[in-house]
Design a protein around this nucleic acid. Sequence first.
RNA 1: GCCCCGGUAGCUCAGCUGGAUAGAGCAACGGAUUUCUAAUCCGUAGGUCACAGGUUCAAAUCCUGUCCGGGGUACCA
Length: 539
Amino acid sequence: MIQTKLESFISDYLKSNNFELSNWNVAINTREGFGDYSSNVALILSKKIGKNPMEIAEAIVGYQNKEEELFSVSATKPGFVNFNISINYYLDIMNSILEEGANFGKPGKHEKSANVEFVSSNPTGPLTAGHGRNTILGDMVSSILSWHGYNVTREYYYNNAGKQMRMLGESSYAKYAKKIGKDVTPPENGYVGEYLDDIADEIITKFGKDLDSNSEHFRAFTEEKIFDSIKNTLKSLRIEFDLFSQEQKFYDNGGIDNVLKKLDELSLTYKKDGATWFKTSGLGKEEDKVLVKSTGEPTYRLPDIAYHIDKVDRGFDLIVDIFGADHIETYPDVLLGLKALGKRTDHIKVIVHQFVTLKKDNQVVKMSTRKANFITLDDLIDQLGVDVVRYFFIMRGANSHLDFDFDLAKDESEKNPVYYLQYAHARISNLITRYDSDINQKTGLDLSLLIEKDEILLIKKLSAFPTKMGEIHESLEPSKLATYLQEVAASYHKFYGNHKVIDHNNIPLSYARKNLCNATQIILKTGLSILGITAPEKM
RNA sequence: GCCCCGGUAGCUCAGCUGGAUAGAGCAACGGAUUUCUAAUCCGUAGGUCACAGGUUCAAAUCCUGUCCGGGGUACCA
């Protein structure tokens, strides 16, 4: 990779002069007129050796072996060292894109495994727009890891045994009772969503009108129906899980008792106010946390520690948890628990995303499954399409609050960023078809004919793909891929608008440009497929 | 009170491991359609990077404080 070469060029210079310096860098330039890459090394060195930075920069320029053809070095004003990379370097990369196609930039296969836990919504109601971010983020993070050679397990962890599920059963019964004319007051703080009416109808059809409130059908059947709907939503989002894990398992197999017992042996728990506390203060935290409530029910932390022990023991090389901002307080406790019990945690990555503010009819919709005040993910998919939904939920960084304006997303669907990307792809498809029937030149490719500014910029943008994917692997931020693809599409549309590809008077150039289109299409298609968004041939 | 995110153009957000003239989309305004798909392109306008200090040759970026918004703070998960 070129950046490494530039860095070693500079370290060679430093070594040959016996300068010890560590915090300099070589960075890609986004601004025009300063070369492709720049280094701040002279500015930093200047302070250390008390010399004018510009002089140092000039010295580095002079250090270059003039035979070097890959790049040229120059110095500018305050003391930056700028590198201009030979176009041949970029053309070589373009050749690789054309040769390797969908595999371009992909690291070789390695035998690593990863587990990504996401959604993890309990089956108390359909997936809402609020769940969309976690769901789609998790799926794309999984795809990014797969692309980088991981064997990924997508895992959905849920609890169908707790208080909320009991409440769901009671709420379901209340709906049923009302429909068969019984006077039953619904549970306080129960669920009231319309989806429960539909389920109550089904219960009547299937099991009749003589069920009493104790019937298991209210809880079990309701849960089953809701889970079916969740799975359907996931399916329409093109998401497939490898594993569904139940919290109940860790009650049944003693995992939870075991955690309590071991923590107790380590003197990390104590009783107070009828509750069992986790002495996290002994592990560097300011406050202790409750593991078992005074009612005897564990808090979220305890089973989650047991669950994570299970995940760690399954031996993954990487474990990723996708959590909403509401978990930000609890996950450090889970990690502390794991550490205290002697488990590895250095391979656990927690991605905390901020919440989505959904706006509809100019109002903020507060999401609450219980109060049935929500827009479902299905609603969004129906109105906007899967591609738009997938894109909108990841177009912002996970750390930013996401404003999802339903009306705007719908109104603007024709000038949507998603369509901008897809249109670039479709345009290329059409063009290539046209080229094949009009010219159909297939030998004698000479990419060096691509000398226009728009062509060069596009080629450089495409060449950045492997580096960009590396950054995305590091940060696990799909939004960065979306941004990059927008830049690729913009470069392409610009090139397309300013230059004609098919020119019967200049077949060699036509052929070179057609290959530039091919390369662009490969990058767009690869990127879109990682995002799980379709790359249409026609629009 | 304490903890975690965020505050950048009218709106939604990039940029944040410090670098040169702070970017994009939408909205506004003005252009391009004898055409390889105008779902596009070109141009104009739009900024106290919340505020105040500090560190530095250099701060939107790092540190401290203040203000504002979101989330959390056992008995919702």
